[in-house]
Computed example of a mutant assay.
Amino acid sequence: MKRRLGVAVLAAMMMVGVAGCAGGGPRDAGPTPSGSAVAPSGSPTPSPTPQPDLASIVVSATDVTLLDDSGAPQATLTFSGDDPASYVTALSASLEMEPTETTSPNGAQGAQFTTMYEWPGLLISTGFTEECLPACRHVTIVVSVPELAGVPIRTVSGISVGDSVDEARALGAQPTPEITLAAEPEDPALFGSTSEATRIVILDLDEDESTIAGLRANPWFYTFGNL
């Protein structure tokens, strides 16, 4: 009897041991897969900030300059002596727009011929006499739009067609003895003088005289005594 009881007890102990091995004890965490962890992605590389388009047509009292997309001078046309052909070529390429070109006899200051290059709202004209080139060549620019083909047209100080008179005055425009409003004097010290003249850009006004309607410049637009 004692032998059978001992065998039964031993059998029971073995069953408990097997049960403990099967699930009664603490479980080990599953194995970490070797090399399978996903590394956190880095911050996305920011796209470069687009540079502002600085292209513009800038009118001063003595010349007109074409600035490229970086704001650097690409071509300059001086109102006294320069043949505008090369400037017109550079401007046409920048605008991707050819002007209407016409040549006719006569012109200002006794010119033998006048050639006109005209885009919508922008006119560049040159009067010349063949016998005295380049000394007697002169250029006039007339602007009646704030931009052309997306390229802004402005004075050196930033005045554009469509600006209010107050905005233009804030940028330095002022009346002269004979002109309602002018800007960009060649010699700023003479802008208000009544005894010595300096070349300027004339600012044409609308009917209400409240808004800039046009820009004009050539070799003879002075603070007084101009044509």
Results as ranks from 00 to 15, higher is better:
Glu130Arg: 01
Gly162Ser: 05
Val151Ser: 04
Glu207Ala: 15
Val139Asp: 00
Pro152Ala: 12
Val165Thr: 12
Pro146Met: 06
Ser195Ile: 13
Glu178Tyr: 02
Gly158Asn: 07
Arg216Lys: 10
Pro152Asp: 13
Val145Thr: 11
Gly158Ser: 06
Thr211Glu: 13
Val156Gln: 14
Ile124Glu: 04
Ala213Glu: 12
Gly150Ala: 06
Leu148Gln: 03
Ser210Ile: 09
Glu186Lys: 00
Glu130Ile: 00
Ala182Met: 09
Arg216His: 09
Gly192Ala: 05
Thr180Cys: 05
Pro146Asn: 11
Thr140His: 15
Pro152Gln: 14
Thr129Arg: 01
Phe191Met: 15
Leu122Phe: 09
Arg169Trp: 08
Leu148Trp: 15
Thr198Asp: 11
Val161Asn: 08
Pro146Phe: 05
Ala135Phe: 08
Ala197Asn: 08
Ala149Val: 03
Glu167Asp: 15
Pro185Val: 14
Gly162Met: 05
Val161Leu: 07
Glu167Cys: 09
Ser195Trp: 10
Glu131Tyr: 00
Gly121Ile: 11
Ala149Leu: 04
Thr155Phe: 02
Ala149Gln: 07
Phe128Gly: 00
Ile124Tyr: 05
Ala170Glu: 14
Glu167Ile: 12
Asp204Ile: 05
Ala170Asn: 13
Arg154Phe: 01
Glu196Ala: 13
Gln174Ile: 12
Gly158Val: 04
Arg169Lys: 15
Ile141Val: 15
Ser210Trp: 03
Pro175Glu: 12
Ser164Asp: 08
Ala189Tyr: 12
Thr194Ser: 09
Arg169Gln: 14
Gly150Met: 05
Asp163Arg: 02
Ile212Trp: 01
Ile179Asp: 10
Arg216Gly: 12
Glu186Trp: 07
Leu203Asp: 13
Ser195Phe: 11
Ile124Ala: 06
Ile200Asp: 11
Gln174Pro: 05
Gly172Tyr: 14
Ser193Thr: 06
Pro134Gln: 00
Pro185Thr: 07
Pro120Ser: 04
Val145Arg: 02
Glu131Gly: 07
Arg137Glu: 00
Ser210Met: 10
Val145Asp: 11
Val143Glu: 09
Pro185Gln: 12
Ser210Val: 11
Leu205Thr: 12
Cys132Trp: 09
Leu148Ile: 15
Leu122Tyr: 07
Ile179Val: 07
Arg169Glu: 14
Glu130Asp: 06
Leu123Arg: 14
Asp204Glu: 13
Asp204Pro: 04
Gly158Asp: 01
Ala213Pro: 06
Glu147Cys: 03
Ser195Cys: 06
Val143Tyr: 04
Ala213Met: 02
Ile179Arg: 05
Leu122Lys: 01
Pro175Asp: 10
Ala189Gln: 10
Ala183Val: 15
Asp208Lys: 06
Gln174Phe: 14
Gln174Ala: 13
Asp166Ala: 14
Pro185Ile: 15
Glu184Lys: 00
Leu190Asn: 05
Gly214Glu: 10
Cys132Phe: 13
Leu203Gly: 09
Arg199Asp: 15
Glu184Met: 02
Gly127Ile: 01
Val151Thr: 09
Ser157Leu: 10
Leu190Cys: 06
Leu181Thr: 01
Ile141Asn: 07
Ile212Glu: 07
Val201Tyr: 06
Glu196Thr: 15
Ile179Gly: 08
Arg154Ile: 00
Pro185Ala: 11
Pro146Val: 09
Leu171Phe: 12
Arg154Val: 03
Gly150Gln: 04
Leu122Ser: 02
Ser164Glu: 08
Arg199Met: 13
